[in-house]
């Protein structure tokens, strides 16, 4: 573990222990180590002693905001669907949040999914999380049995090999173009603040836009061809909290249930479109996908347009409206057919 990560881990543990011991929070949401190299598990610490299991490293790829609404609800005293909310303050939750995770908390605040007064946010500036799949590719099919994180390198070793790769070369695509790696809201700031400067935030999207339509269609269909419809992308996403997802609607059934190409395509289009203007590009969908589909590019295109057309970036201001829940009289409408009165 690199020194920075070790220090951040220590500080997270200390703060979590302190908050749990003092009774300020009822649960602390962070990460604990996984059973394989380069894996971590989201973890809920409920006793001060659990705090020692918390860790911080470059493989904390899931977005913890995803767990917040359900975790907050689980801490409320049980009540019937028609009972009024309990009087008095409700138990609080502590959570570790990087730039994107904190932005997702802001989106959840805008959409009334979480109550800020019930959150204690430990902000951590992200150095960019590492994509396990990129490391695997660098190991050329050999199983990594141990991965050690240095300051700027990753030491990967297996049964009969050892290699050192540049950490930045294995960082996830979304982190490479992230402009908000510092938390936008937090109660405590942990670790060094990053001052990374990013250019060409949408370069990946521009490259696809430059392709002819047929090539784009081929890219899209090839990308989603291996989809098994496990919905890991949807379930890893902190924006997805509808009680009934559109894929589960049966009348009308928007999306068929098998892996028919048209159904898979519709699933990905509609899933991405539901995230339009709300996606913080946290990359959890891509990190969760067992098949390695780069579905982040779909939501990224929508973010780019929301930014260019409406000047909107998701999750920066708790008071702002999500861009698709509002309008301006002078919104662009060049795409419309308007016949002039003769």
């Amino acid at each position: 573990m690199s020194d920075t990560n070790a220090k951040i881990t220590e500080e997270i543990r200390a703060k979590a222990r302190e908050l749990l011991s003092s009774g300020e929070i009822a649960a602390f949401l962070g990460f604990t180590s996984g059973s394989l190299p380069m894996t971590t598990r989201p973890f809920v610490a409920k006793r001060p002693g659990d705090a020692d299991k918390l860790i911080w490293n470059s493989f904390c790829v899931m977005n913890l905001a995803n767990y917040l609404p359900a975790l907050l609800e689980s801490l409320e005293p049980p009540r019937g669907p028609k009972d009024p909310p309990p009087a008095g303050p409700l138990p609080k939750v502590g959570v570790v949040a990087t730039g994107c995770c904190s932005r997702n908390i802001v989106v959840q605040m805008q959409e009334r999914q979480v109550d800020r007064s019930r959150l204690v946010i430990l902000g951590v500036s992200s150095r960019g999380m590492v994509d396990r799949k990129k490391v695997m590719a660098a190991a050329e099919g050999r199983e990594p049995l141990k991965v050690e994180e240095g300051g700027h390198t990753l030491k990967v070793s297996g049964r009969d090999y050892e290699l050192e790769i540049d950490r930045w070369s294995a960082v996830r695509d979304n982190c490479l173009t992230c402009a908000h790696n510092n938390p936008v809201i937090s109660d405590y700031l942990i670790g060094p603040v990053s001052n990374r400067d990013v250019k060409d935030r949408f370069a990946q999207i521009e490259a696809i836009e430059a392709m002819p339509a047929n090539a784009r269609w081929k890219w899209f269909t090839d990308e989603i061809a291996s989809c098994i419809r496990c919905y890991a992308c949807r379930n890893a996403c902190p924006l997805c909290y509808c009680p009934t997802c559109f894929v589960d609607d049966s009348r009308p059934q928007w999306v068929g249930k098998s892996t028919e190409p048209a159904d898979t395509a519709l699933f990905h289009i509609l899933r991405a479109f539901h995230c339009a203007g709300r996606c913080t590009d946290c990359g959890a969908c891509e990190s969760a996908c067992p098949m390695g589909i780069k579905m982040r590019l779909f939501t990224r295109k929508l973010s780019k347009d929301a930014f260019n057309l409406f000047g909107a970036e998701a999750g920066l201001d708790p008071q702002a409206q999500p861009p698709l829940a509002t309008y301006r009289p002078d919104d662009p409408e060049e795409f419309l057919i308007v016949e002039e009165k003769k």
């Binding site: 339509a213 295109k301 929508l302 347009d305 057309l309 795409f335």
Partner: peptide, 14 residues
Amino acid sequence: RRFGLLKNFLEFLG
């Protein structure tokens, strides 16, 4: 707003 995004998005996908 919605249609503008959707039209661009579908064209982006081919």
